[in-house]
């Protein structure tokens, strides 16, 4: 895998702000594209939950490390609540009110720990633009109670100084890569190494979850397919033996034929009328 293809994309806290605030302007498609695809990612260790959306139980006994969805949600504001399995919504352990889901977007909502170990919910907008033929998109999200990290592929840092709750991404050659996560600027491995199979035309989203202190660091992965592009062309011959159609000489021949016919005809005609 050629590491030069990794393009570091500024992560910034902008990602989180974007999703719930101003994404509508960026991703809103035509008026008919009012629904968004929403996935839910569980990254809080040891805490299965029930998930309520607008007061209605949507996920039952949702386990850490699982990914649910995608749900097709109409554009609008949603109340999200997490409870311990079976407990009433009134005793929710985590709630987000009036989360704005824009139209026509692809969103992942992660329930995870913040850098200090407190549970929180962070929405991410997934980049589902097409990748070039032969490429795959890798997105890494820091959603663990851990300090800044570097993500390495084949031992070389490709995303550096990533902090909770931000993401880094790049389009890379499709194929397998051995990746690990180290504390930023060090060789201290926090997660991995693991073999990542990056399938062409997909986005693989890897969430770092858990807690460094609790020794529960792990990863959750989500894959989005259908982002492939066709090759630019299919060049498959430079011999010319199978050429069809006609060459320049054909037009010369045809032109000469027409001129001869006209010339001959005119002379015949003038001869007949007796004019000399």
């Amino acid at each position: 895998m050629q590491l030069s293809y990794f393009r570091r994309v500024a992560a910034g806290g902008a990602v989180a702000a974007l999703a719930f605030a101003g994404v509508g302007a960026l991703t809103a498609g035509p008026a008919y594209a009012a629904t968004s695809k929403v996935s839910i990612v569980h990254g809080i260790p040891d805490t299965p939950v029930d998930v309520y959306v607008n007061g209605k139980k949507t996920l039952d006994n949702f386990k850490p490390g699982d990914v649910a969805g995608p749900l097709n949600l109409e554009e609008g504001d949603y109340d999200i609540a997490l409870t311990k399995p079976g407990e009433p919504i009134g005793s929710a352990i985590l709630t987000v009110d009036d989360a704005a889901v824009p139209g026509g977007a692809n969103i992942s909502i992660a329930a995870h720990l913040d850098a200090t170990g407190q549970p929180k919910i962070t929405p991410f907008v997934n980049d589902v633009s097409k990748v070039d033929a032969g490429k795959a998109r890798l997105i890494v999200r820091h959603t663990a109670a851990a300090p800044a990290v570097d993500v390495r592929a084949g031992g070389t840092p490709v995303f550096e100084d990533l902090t909770n709750p931000n993401e880094a991404k790049g389009d890379v050659d499709a194929g397998e890569v051995k990746a690990d996560v180290v504390l930023a600027g060090t060789d201290t491995v926090a997660i991995g190494p693991a073999d990542l199979n990056l399938k062409e035309g997909t986005a693989t989203i890897v969430y770092a979850i858990g807690s460094a202190e609790g020794k529960t660091l792990d990863v959750v992965a989500q894959t989005i397919t259908g982002l492939h592009s066709a090759p630019g062309g299919v060049p498959s011959g430079d011999g010319g033996q199978a050429g069809t159609g006609v060459d320049t000489w054909w037009y010369v021949l045809t032109g000469a034929g027409v001129l001869l016919l006209l010339g001959g005809g005119v002379r015949m005609a003038t001869a007949r009328t007796g004019r000399t």
């Binding site: 006609v246 054909w250 000469a256 034929g257 001869l260 006209l262 010339g263 001959g264 005809g265």
Partner: peptide, 22 residues
């Protein structure tokens, strides 16, 4: 003069026939 004209006509027809075949 007529023979010349006829020859021209024949050559023209031949050229066009060849072109059509190709």
């Amino acid at each position: 003069r007529n023979r010349g004209a006829l020859a021209a006509l024949a050559a023209g027809v031949a050229a066009l026939t060849a072109a059509a075949l190709v």
